[in-house]
Each structure stands twice: as C-alpha cells, then as structure tokens.
C-alpha cells in the first residue's frame, strides 16, 4: 500500500497538497454492531478520494462520522492539522465541510434557487435586526450571495429549473441540485454519498464531468462513495476499500484493483 507524504502533481497536472482530513483509528459501534473497526486513512488537499465496499460495509457511517452525525467510540478526527473535538453537524458545516446524502435530502417545500441559497448560510452573517430592516446590509448580502449561487447554477447547467419547487423535479436533477447546494457553501472538503446511484449512463457521465470540473476549477477536495467501479477508477486519485467495517485496501485505483484481498472480498463478489 502506497503512502505518499510529499505534495505531488497528478498525471493530469493537478496539485495534490498536504493532508486535509486525517481519520485515526476510528471505531464506531451501534449497540453490538461494529459498523467501523479501527480504520485510519487520510484525505489530501485537492484530491478525489473514493470510499468503496459492498453494501453495509460502513461507508456511509464513515461519512457520518466526518460530518458529525455520529461520534466514534474510539479514534481521532484531525482536520486541517488540528484534532477536532466532538462536534455537531452544523459546527462541522461551519468548518467548511459540505455533503450530499445517499437518499437525497433536499428541502421539498422550497424552490431550486432557495435550496441552493441555503448552501450559502455559513457565509451570511447579517443578524435578526439587519434582516428585519432589510434595506442596507441584509439586502446587499442577499444580492452578493445570489450572484455566487447564479454562477453555480450556470456551472451545473440548471438555469431552466431555477424557480421550480424541488419536490417536482425528477431524480437525476434532484441529485444535481443537492450537489449545487453543497457547492454553494464553497467547502474545503466535499463529501458525496453515492452521487450517481440510480442514474442512467448519460446522467452518470454528466455527474462525473461535474465532479471532475469542481475538483479542477475550484480545487475542492472531494471524498465520494460509489459502487460503479468504472466511475471510481476514472475519477479518483486514491481509493479506500471497506468490508464489514474493516479497511481492506487503500491506494491508487490500479493498486486497489490488483490487491488480492480486495478482489476476494469485493470485486469477486461483485463479479459473481
């Protein structure tokens, strides 16, 4: 297993920097079930990091630990060189970590535009009083943030559905709006839980392109969970493989693909 320490440049010329997020010896239990068993891995600045594994391997649980929904019984979470105390999800969000969910979690009663605007919350500072008055600070802030959101709408090519209530959108577009909301936060680290699940080939291609562009243009670090091995091999710089809560592989896509334990536990099963 490769463990590159120094910053380096990828084959396609992207800069991979220092360790951004470092998970050290994470163990997570639900009652008797050990969903994560003593797993360590890191995510480096600028990279696309995939987490793969069979159903129930503990991948989503790992993202939930990172985003503060679960506090692990054991282990440490280091972010930007500092050990993170136990945090609530909204505090994690304010540190610059945004995410999407395996089962879409949008605000169905609001328009696409408003949904994406909620992603800007961590950047909007005007208080109750300023908003009650509106003219001045609150309005200025609204307009500035709207401009950022419009750039993301253009980037993800969803101009036409801007004012549509989210509840009325088809599945593929909902996934895209959820990505837009996460991007609106301009996160340091973006977590994507199965961003392509349930999509057709064309939608998957679009989504892959967006993920690569986000990483390339904004330099956003991305950790994603994905079942489609082809997609994982194409997108990611490094892959963590999980099985029954354990880490059974970690490295570049080609290293992982040739790792015997991974082939047995995961690829073997998948190719049955």
């Amino acid at each position: 297993m490769k463990d590159t320490v120094a910053p380096y440049t990828t084959a396609d010329g992207r800069q991979i920097g220092d360790v951004l997020m470092d998970m050290r010896g994470i163990t997570l239990r639900f009652g008797g079930v050990e969903a994560i068993k003593d797993i360590s891995f890191d995510i480096r600045e600028g990279e696309i990091r995939a987490i793969i594994g069979p159903n129930g391997a503990g991948k989503s649980s790992m993202l939930n630990v990172i985003s503060g929904f679960y506090n692990p019984q054991d282990g440490e979470v280091w972010f930007r060189g500092a050990k993170r105390p136990p945090m609530k999800p909204y505090q994690v969000a304010r540190q610059g970590i945004a995410r999407t969910f395996q089962n879409i979690a949008l605000f169905d009663g609001m328009s696409v535009l408003d949904n994406i605007m909620t992603g800007r919350l961590t950047h909007m500072k005007s208080g109750l009083l300023a908003q009650a008055v509106w003219k001045g600070r609150a309005e200025r802030e609204e307009v500035e943030n709207r401009a950022v959101v419009e750039r993301i709408i253009d980037f993800l090519e969803i101009q036409a559905i801007r004012k549509t209530p989210v509840g009325r959108l088809p599945y593929g577009l909902k996934k895209r709006v959820e990505l837009a909301r996460a991007l609106a936060a301009e996160p340091k680290l973006l977590l994507l839980d199965e961003p392509m699940a349930g999509m057709n080939v064309e939608e998957k291609e679009d989504m892959s392109r967006f993920i690569l562009d986000v990483n390339d243009e904004f330099g956003t670090t991305i950790a994603l969970i994905e079942h489609d091995m082809g997609v994982v091999m194409d997108l990611s710089d490094r892959v963590v493989v999980m099985d029954y809560g354990r880490k059974i592989g970690d490295g570049t896509p080609s290293e992982v693909r040739n790792n015997q334990e991974v082939i047995d536990a995961y690829l073997g099963v998948a190719h049955d």
Partner: peptide, 26 residues
C-alpha cells in the same frame, strides 16, 4: 423581511428536513 432572507430559509430548512438543515450549518 424576516422570511425573505437567510433567516427565513433557515426556518424553512428546519421545517422541510431538519437533518439536512444541520448539514448546511443551521
């Protein structure tokens, strides 16, 4: 005024899905 800006969106986010509201920083 209180419902048209970020405060109003925080409230609606809590109403529509409180888990997702937390993840955007509410």
């Amino acid at each position: 005024n209180l419902t048209r800006g970020s405060l109003g969106r925080q409230w609606m986010a809590i109403r529509d899905m409180d888990i997702a509201a937390e993840i955007i920083g509410v």
